[in-house]
Design a protein around this nucleic acid. Structure first.
Length: 429
RNA sequence: GGAGGAGUGGCAGAGUGGACGAUUGCGGCGGUCUUGAAAACCGUUAGGGCCCGUGAGGGUCCUCAGAGGUUCGAAUCCUCUCUCCUCCGCCA
């Protein structure tokens, strides 16, 4: 959420942001109109309340002196009626204003390329070369089936389409990746590990920006107003909701492994097969709370922390700076990391690292007290480090051999009890 | 799920209809003292909105878990919701 005062004083900046994102500017004009009306009303209302407060004080004194207060009470009552009327109107306007405010996206940072869709994204660097094969590389679907480590039909039997089920060395590889990533981020990069609930309430979902806009993309429980988290960003960012942090403690670094749940409503037809787009996947998330002046430096560092996972796994990738049209609602700037998937023959988004500036912090009311005693909003950042399922796709497709077996990347072997290769299971092991 | 108890500033904790946006302590900030620091002492310190002012600042309104209600007036009384604690039940 943007600062209302900022919008009021810089409407042209918000107008430009909406335009750059390819959105209509109508919402802004609407908001400015309501804001003006609301402020005029507020002035009248406060004036009335002031009068009433004065009379109430008089009544108090009259009563103490045992004098007659009936006349004053009648007067106050009359003002009270007007107050009620204006308050009713005010709460209507407040509601409208809040709704509009929650639906205005963040303002893209000046370094973000302007463009209405992903074709304007900019590759800022690449690492490694897309791997060449002297045979036609298989997709992770083919490999998963051949090695009997991923079982989509049975997952479909258990829940429905677009769910994954890992077996044997596939399950172990999944677990190894989680462990490997968490170890890297906690030990080397000094993030504190969090193991949060996978369910959160409506307030948490609103604070990080999933609600109200994306409610249909979320899984919601029927009997309680809880949601399955679409990313660990939600519980971890909400750790400090409604808190005032101390400046000396910033920046705070957190990492968390969680399953992530997404309905993917409206994305039918895209990536309908395989692990690329499933309703439940696993992800290691990185979250930072920083001082405003440090957030862009911290953002670059966070991206590097995520990139290191790919480097250690020996997966070639590119780092993409998203354009204004591709940027998420709450983000001010975002880099995607895309790993090369030879079987699919394309790059796969395995991480998305965003700086939200104070957009989430304002919604979530996360502030800090400076050493001088001033209070300000923190900046929040997060990124995947990494999405486990898609990383597994990249590993299978990059490390496959002609015979259909898959070599385990060196870095993962300690987490696989020394196993160096996945071969088809001939019988139940 | 049942029965009780509780929710107040950064934290702890007073406050049962008007003098309370709130005693006090801790913490924070400023100062005295000191070569410097600590201790001690003095002062200061809730958040937010609106209006006025170039500014320092001033005025005013709102906020005591949240939403309603009673009242001229609510932290205080009433209703509902949420959260936490204790006991019982159930359970990995």
């Amino acid at each position: 959420m943007l600062d209302l005062k900022f919008i009021r004083e810089n409407p042209e900046k918000v107008r430009k942001a909406l335009k750059d994102r390819g959105m209509s500017g109508e919402i802004l004009e609407n908001l400015l109109h309501i804001d003006a009306e609301r402020r005029a009303l507020l002035r009248d209302l406060e004036d009335l309340r002031h009068q009433r407060n004065l009379i109430s004080e008089e009544i108090s004194k009259l009563l103490q002196n045992k004098e007659n207060s009936q006349e004053k009470i009648m007067e106050a009552k009359k003002i009270g009626e007007d107050v009620d009327r204006l308050e009713g109107r005010l709460s209507q306007l407040d509601e409208k204003l809040k709704d509009l405010l929650l639906n205005i996206p963040n303002i893209p940072h000046e370094s973000v390329p302007v463009g209405t869709d992903s074709s304007y994204n900019k590759v800022v660097r690449t690492w490694g070369e897309p791997k060449e094969f002297d045979f036609t590389p298989r997709t992770h679907l083919e490999l998963g089936e051949y090695l009997d480590i991923i079982d989509f039909p049975r997952a479909a039997k258990l829940v429905g389409s677009n769910f994954a089920l890992f077996k044997g060395d596939g399950a172990r590889l999944q677990r190894a990746l989680i462990d490997f990533m968490l170890d890297l981020h906690t030990k080397k990069h000094r993030y504190k590990e969090i193991w949060p609930p996978a369910l959160v309430n409506r307030m948490s979902m609103t604070a990080t920006g999933q609600l109200p806009k994306l409610e249909l993309d979320m899984y919601r429980l029927r009997d309680d107003d809880f949601f399955l988290i679409p990313t660990a960003e939600v519980p971890v960012t909400n750790l400090h909701r409604d808190e005032i942090l101390e400046e000396e403690k910033l920046p705070l670094y957190y990492t968390a492994y969680t399953p992530c749940f997404r309905r993917e409503a409206g994305s039918y037809g895209k990536d309908t097969k395989g692990l690329v787009r499933v309703h439940q996947f696993d992800k290691i998330e990185l979250v930072k709370f920083t001082k405003p002046e440090d957030s862009y430096k911290e953002h670059e560092m966070l991206v590097r922390d995520a990139e290191e996972v790919l480097q250690l796994l020996g997966l070639s990738y590119r780092t993409v700076l998203l354009s204004t049209g591709d940027l998420s609602f709450a983000g001010a700037k975002c880099y995607d990391l895309e790993a090369w998937a030879p079987g699919l023959g394309r790059y796969l988004e395995v991480s998305s690292c965003s700086n939200f500036e104070d957009f989430q912090a304002r919604r979530a009311n996360i502030r800090f007290r400076t050493i001088g005693g001033k209070i300000a909003y923190v900046h929040t950042l997060n990124g995947s480090g990494l999405a486990v399922g898609r990383t597994l796709v990249a590993i299978l497709e990059n490390y496959q051999e002609k015979d259909g077996t898959v070599v385990i990347p060196e870095a993962l072997r300690p987490y696989m009890h020394g196993l160096d290769r996945i071969i088809p299971s001939i019988e139940v092991r």
